[in-house]
Design a protein around this nucleic acid. Sequence first.
DNA 1: CCCATCTGTAACGATAATTGTTACTAATAC
DNA 2: GTATTAGTAACAATTATCGTTACAGATGGG
Lengths: 162, 162
Amino acid sequence: MPANSRFAIAVHILTLMARAGDEPLKSDEVACSVNTNPVVIRRILCALSKAGLVISQTGASGGSRLALKPSRITLLEVYRAVDAGDVFALHPQPPNAKCPVGMNIEGALDSILHEVEQGVERVLEKITIEKVLKSIEPRRGRRAAPVARAENRSVGKKEREL
Amino acid sequence: MPANSRFAIAVHILTLMARAGDEPLKSDEVACSVNTNPVVIRRILCALSKAGLVISQTGASGGSRLALKPSRITLLEVYRAVDAGDVFALHPQPPNAKCPVGMNIEGALDSILHEVEQGVERVLEKITIEKVLKSIEPRRGRRAAPVARAENRSVGKKEREL
DNA sequence: CCCATCTGTAACGATAATTGTTACTAATAC
DNA sequence: GTATTAGTAACAATTATCGTTACAGATGGG
């Protein structure tokens, strides 16, 4: 199963826009940084737009920009905007209702899933887009932020200069 | 992508075994409660066995039973034993290394993923199989445990009585 | 007013993981 | 020895994701 990377790409997009400030970015430009097709970007932008995190404009010299200040966008809002999927799935087929365990296990698992998701949300609500941007642009004269641990996976694809 | 339900089924299996005590359960019996094929059960049992959570025995009157007391098995161990998958995926293709954001975003996302997984683990390490079993077998005279919220999804399949 | 530009979105193929299934080997108890 | 059971390989069906092409609709500049 190719796992869902929409959350990762959404954070990438919003970080680019935080860096661009008021200037709207085109989906082509964003796609070049993310290294994917512009339609993939527009699909995610659409979700972010519905969640009120970005503002898009069609037409010539259009594009998208943040609807809020980077310090007011938490990763929890991003996580909810794109459908990132559950941490784990329940039974594909409902268990045997004639078994004392099968009868009740789904409820128990559902409750566990709920608690786990809350654990995820407690972490995500503390991280803002501003924080992500700062972590990848460490101020000169200081150590790099602990978040930035970039790998160097090259895949031999043409990459435009930005 | 069909999301991974191995964790859910593993918890189901271990709860059944906690209830069975010392008596070993056959993969056929477990499969009947989980409502799936015995091979699916054996695959997960194999992972649980490698993690030291269950003990299996081949041959006539064989089967599997818990290797530890239910109170000593946390869902975190179960989560690690079966490969439950990441909470979110990183970029399918590496981002553009020529972009200041693309250059560093993977490290930032990796760091975020790490923090999120820790949030998940903090929740799971507090829940034991014993607790799950108790939550689906509320003692008489008390209220049902808050975890049990069973639905009644019937799918018109034959279900053996256990 | 017209037209190039850009978003929004539908449609489709390739890819990849999961689950269910059959089939077989190896181990074990009676 | 023989029936029983776990372990495991192999394959099909299902399904979500991602990339891609195509096109309609909106918008701003000339």
